[in-house]
Write a protein that binds this DNA or RNA. Structure first.
Lengths: 222, 222
DNA sequence: GACCGTTTCAAACGTTTGTTTTAACCTTCC
DNA sequence: GGAAGGTTAAAACAAACGTTTGAAACGGTC
């Protein structure tokens, strides 16, 4: 007869329940292997729980995945706070927006697998990307970036030219996340910590402000 | 007894051999489902060939995949030709580089699944990305983009600042490929045809040249 | 027709997949 | 103590996976 041991004397501080252990492990495995590549057995083994636990606590593999992705991409930044910080000039405003957008994308405190999963979702959109764009990216663009750009250009540019500028700014920022596999191969010693985020943000801001100024200067009045 | 029919009277013009049929079908399936998601049976069914054909013509699923990816990403543009076209000024040189790099990324004549596969590979690098970077992107950067940037900035900037500028330029271009899922959700009526590539290239060139000029102007001599 | 190397096919192989089942376990309340 | 309800565990499930097999069919050469 097998006598089962139970945590008797030492109640172990970092005790997680099975559900949370699954969530932590699944995030990493999904980020590394993708939805199809990840197996329930790989997840449950890393979590140290039984195979059946996934189907008990979540309906199936798909439900576990969407729950993980939505959580990983959820916005924590409140852009309105960012605007309140630097209301001085449209230039300072853009600088601040770029910095906080970069921080939102690259935040070193956020687990690496969340960024990985986010990049994966962008290359291979499931339903989760719609929610991510609607809740985070579109508000950032429409309510903060575009008004700032309008202020900077003073109604001299067409809507389409403004859109192109917005894409240029966001593209530079996004590339540091999406293009990381390429960037790291080209510049192997290019780590992104908190200091680098500030450096990159300052570069993008100066680079972009000059571009905006130039396009505004040479614009024929609409 | 089964009598096998053979193309007797009508030799059917668009006759492909089994190997090519597999390559065409596999490209689409891999682009849609990813490496793990795609099954050999789905590929062979779409190709209209037997399951065993993949393992006969290619060693295994992995070899078929890398062959597809490398072909999809293979450079057809000879950058040196591009440089020969516009040797007038470094400004024209950069403009031309941006245009041809964008065309390489977005070429509307290239099947859509190749771009999809390329984006997938960047978000989720397998071994194929190493070869892609080594054969295409790094030469483009080191032999053409960086020298042009050096000419434009005249030794006034540090190596790191030059790298940041290179990332800004390539990031804007790449974002039109990698960020398409986001861009299309933000601007649903933004199609990318041949005319748009020229428009976008002109925008990125003007935007970037202004940024480069500004960073050069304000640089303290090294 | 007989032989050859190459290609195609149906069938089966052994594994691995996601999921389900069944029983044991623990806590709680009576 | 013991039934109830929620949770965990080992084992088994059918289906699907990538791959292999062995034979049939093919075009070309003698």
């Amino acid at each position: 007869m097998v006598v089962r041991e139970r945590k008797s004397a030492a109640p172990e501080i970092s005790e997680e329940n099975t559900r949370d252990k699954i969530l932590s492990a699944a995030g990493e495995v999904f980020a590394e292997q993708g939805f199809e590549g990840a197996t329930i057995r790989a997840i449950t083994e890393r979590a140290g729980v039984n195979v059946a636990a996934v189907n008990y606590h979540f309906r199936d593999k798909a439900e576990l995945y969407t729950r993980i992705v939505l959580d990983a991409c959820s916005a924590r930044a409140a852009w309105s706070d960012v605007m309140a910080e630097a209301p001085n000039s449209p230039q300072e405003c853009l600088r601040s927006l770029i910095y906080h957008f970069l921080e939102y994308l690259l935040d070193p405190d956020r687990p690496a697998w969340k960024k990985r999963l986010m990049a994966r979702e962008m290359a291979n959109p499931t339903g989760a990307l719609d929610e991510l764009v609607d809740k985070n990216i579109r508000p950032f663009r429409n309510e903060f970036l575009m008004p700032t750009l309008r202020e900077l250009t003073g109604d001299k540019l067409s809507r389409r030219q403004l859109s192109l500028i917005a894409i240029s700014v966001m593209g530079q920022c996004h590339y540091f996340l999406l293009g990381q596999p390429i960037t790291q191969r080209l510049h192997p010693d290019f780590k992104i910590g908190r200091a680098e985020i500030a450096e990159i943000a300052e570069h993008i801001a100066r680079f972009s402000l000059a571009g905006i100024a130039e396009l505004t200067r040479t614009a024929r009045r609409s």
